[in-house]
């Protein structure tokens, strides 16, 4: 399996979105293209709007599930506690004896002939839980935004580095290729990255609340 950003062509992504249109609240249309925000003339207002659009990805369970507020990741569109109960451990990769890698390999793995509602086990070479200071669970988009900009709470990244991270990091990209039976985050990583880039360019203004 290739990494999503490279393998999911726009057409395929659109098709995926179409197929998911009957799903839950998150299965909306894809992400709006950044250009659609050009009509907003006030840079601050535009920056907020761009971030709110990117928030469709950021606050999607696919992303929040691994940015938990506690020591256990979440699972599923209902964001229930991860089963089996795995704990973040000192390095956010689980605890000795049961690391993330005990179940999650380098790639998504299709499950064949078992539970009908569990079609695959997610995978990525660096599968881990976001550090606790990067917790998103239970936070508003505005709070997450402030947090993303704060080097104390974003892994010491500059805003430019945040843009690169969002646009190119392959673990972020997993959200668009979460494996069979799992709803992807909307849009494409390319569009998402561009939304973040424009948000920064317009002043990286955070939504209030």
């Amino acid at each position: 399996m290739k990494h999503p950003r490279l393998s999911l062509a726009g057409g395929a992504a659109a098709l995926a979105m179409l197929m998911l249109s009957a799903g839950g609240a998150w299965a909306q249309e894809g992400l709006k293209a950044p250009a659609e925000f050009d009509q907003i003339t006030d840079p601050s207002a535009r920056s907020v709007a761009l971030f709110e659009e990117a928030g469709k990805v950021i606050q999607h369970p696919r992303c929040v599930n691994c940015h938990p507020a506690g020591d256990r990741p979440l699972q599923g569109m209902d964001m229930h506690p991860h089963q089996p109960p795995v704990f973040r451990g000192e390095s956010n990769i689980g605890m000795p004896g049961m690391m993330c890698g005990t179940c999650h390999g380098a790639e998504n793995v299709e499950i064949v002939g078992q539970a009908a509602d569990l079609k695959s086990i997610p995978g990525h070479p660096l599968w881990h839980v976001a550090p606790i200071e990067m917790a998103w669970e239970g936070k508003t988009l505005g709070q997450i935004c402030v947090q993303i900009k704060d080097p104390e709470r974003n892994g010491g990244k500059t805003l430019d580095e945040i843009v690169v991270h969002m646009a190119e990091d392959s673990l972020v990209g997993w959200g668009w290729n979460p494996g069979a039976g799992r709803e992807p985050v909307p849009g494409t990583q390319e569009v998402f990255g561009e939304l973040i880039r424009r948000w920064v360019a317009d002043g990286a203004v955070c939504p209030t609340g």
Binding site: Q83, T102, C103, G105, A106, G113, Q114, I121
Partner: peptide, 26 residues
């Protein structure tokens, strides 16, 4: 068969691994 129970646990390169969700190709 879905990495829920751990009965299939082996050590893969020194760490625990649920062999039921580990394709042999990997």
């Amino acid at each position: 068969g879905i990495a829920q129970c751990g009965a299939c646990t082996v050590h893969l390169d020194g760490s625990t691994r649920r062999s039921c969700v580990t394709p042999i190709s990997s």
